[in-house]
Amino acid sequence: RNADESPLTRLRRTTGRNGKPLIDDAEFAAGERLRADYTRAQLMPRVTADWSSAIPGGRRGGGMADLADAAIGARRRVEQALAAVGPEFAGVLVDFCCFLKGIEEIEKERCWPVRSAKLVLRLALASLARHYGLTVSARGSRSGIRHWGSDDYRPVVDPQD
């Protein structure tokens, strides 16, 4: 495949005002993983007729039964990923990462304001990266939770009292 044909690669090369790429390595990897699974799952619409399943004698293939185990597994992974990001982000991720539509094309088709798709894509890719476990998750302090009912609670006393 040609990496330059991917709008995800172009978005990765684009830098923001701070000079850093608009998407980080985890978000880029998540988008590429979705694209690879989508392709492996054979979900792309066909442009021409499929003559590979024509069998003499009038018998035809059975749909899902003809798919290889790898394709079925890939379909399951795509479904889980799209369910994890939710319906708000699923469509834009499929358009951008799988159908290779550009940002301007997505904005035009969805009647979005100019430059709004970049923000939505960044949020969608961050959610996808989190689903794949590619992001570093935030952790709280090691001191534990402190609340008014705990043993280590000390009320704040006003020095003027």
Rank of each mutant, 00 (worst) to 15 (best):
I103M: 09
R75E: 11
P159E: 11
L128H: 12
A29I: 02
E27F: 00
R75N: 02
T14M: 09
G102Y: 10
R1I: 04
D69A: 08
R130D: 10
A124D: 11
V136F: 14
R46C: 05
G61A: 14
D4W: 07
S116N: 12
H131S: 05
R122I: 10
S137W: 11
L121T: 01
V78D: 05
A126C: 02
D24P: 01
F96C: 03
A29Q: 05
K20R: 13
S150P: 00
P45V: 01
T15M: 11
Q80G: 08
G140T: 12
R76K: 04
V136W: 09
V157T: 09
E109V: 05
E5K: 11
S141D: 09
V114W: 10
R77F: 00
L100P: 03
L43K: 10
Q80T: 13
G73R: 06
R13A: 15
R13N: 14
N2T: 06
R59E: 09
C111I: 00
R115H: 09
D69E: 09
S53G: 10
R46E: 10
R46I: 03
I106A: 11
R139F: 03
A83L: 07
I103R: 11
V157M: 00
M64H: 14
T9A: 15
D69Q: 09
D69S: 05
G58P: 07
P45K: 02
D50N: 06
R1A: 01
R40L: 04
D161F: 09
V47D: 07
G19D: 08
I106P: 04
A74L: 01
G62Q: 13
R17E: 14
A65E: 15
R76E: 11
Y153S: 07
F99C: 06
S52C: 01
S150W: 07
D69Y: 02
G58R: 12
Y132A: 00
T48N: 07
R35V: 01
A71G: 06
A49E: 13
L67W: 13
K101D: 14
R139I: 05
C97T: 12
M64W: 14
S53Q: 12
K118S: 07
D151M: 04
T135C: 11
R1L: 03
L43V: 10
A26P: 03
G31E: 08
S127C: 03
V136E: 15
R40A: 08
P113N: 13
W112R: 08
M44I: 03
R35L: 03
G63Q: 09
R10G: 12
R12L: 15
A90Y: 07
L43W: 07
R12T: 14
S141W: 04
A3D: 04
M64Y: 14
G133A: 05
A129N: 02
P7H: 08
E79V: 03
D161M: 10
I55H: 15
R59N: 08
D37C: 10
T9V: 14
S150N: 10
A129P: 06
W51F: 11
R77H: 00
